[in-house]
Amino acid sequence: MSAVILPAAARRSGRIDPVRLLRALLPALALALMLGVIFSQQPRAMSYVGLTLLLNLSIPVILATLAQLCVITVNDLDLSVGSFVGLCACIAATLLKDTPLLGVVALAAAIAAYALVGALIQWRDLPSIVVTLGLSFIWTGIAVLILPTPGGRAPEYLTAIMKWKPDFVPLPILYAVALALILHWVMRSSFGTMLRGAGGNPKAMGNAGWSLLRARVTLYLMAGGLGALSGLALVGLTTSGDANMALRYTLMSIAGVILGGGEFTGGRVNPIGAVLGAMTLTLAGSFLTFMHIPPDWQIGAQGAILIIVLALRAVLNRAEERS
């Protein structure tokens, strides 16, 4: 796996720089360390059932993190991911269950709205933080109108998809690997290179004749689609909906992308790292339980993991500068 995430320059020279390798492996090491401690405390967690239970809730978080990653690719930031996931979960628990056709139309409209927002941001040259801040109110407002009190029911097929037990590989790991590889492949393809270029050097891309509008709309469309999938996955796991059920995903998704090695500027994103980052953050809660630390400290542990990984990255960056 290391060969895949290594920068192209290192691969070409055929020589692996240990600092770069370590930096690329940081997200994986953090996850491995956390799983290692959990397994040493409770060996039975190291089983098909144990891993499924531990990582089940990471599936919607991974999808939300990848949605955020798409937006961060064009140097934007999405403060509405959490409320959008909540909206899609509410649509799934009500419209999609009772009137499937209307539900599909509503989800498609929500995703199309995301693409429109991307177009608006590009067209008027707007700050994404403020636009998505306003949108977060709108998504939650619509979700409250659809489902005023927590409730509703997930369609049976969604529950079935999330409870499916494949042979050998636990379901969350299967989904995580598939999502990481698909997004990695998309971002590394020639089309994805154009998308990342729109974040890396928009002026050069524009001068070279690429449509920045198309790049931004595509990425927002992808973000909307992944956000909707996150809502569907969440409602499939919890079997009912609530407008506020995913508000925490907004900050968690940003943290996941950063943990995975993404940066806010320059189109530098790492889908595989982001998936690992999302899994690490989701595991923080269970980690504390296994360490017999009260759950009050769950979000604190997420913050600590973030700071430790960022500190290690800073140390590695400095080591690289010196050499």
Partner: peptide, 26 residues
């Protein structure tokens, strides 16, 4: 209802920034 109030708040934020224009993006 509460839902409409939230949507109105959001629409105002988006409208103000869309009309005011960014000229510089974040």
């Amino acid at each position: 209802s509460a839902g409409v109030r939230l949507i109105a708040t959001g629409l105002i934020i988006v409208t103000v920034i869309a009309i005011g224009g960014g000229s510089k993006r974040v």
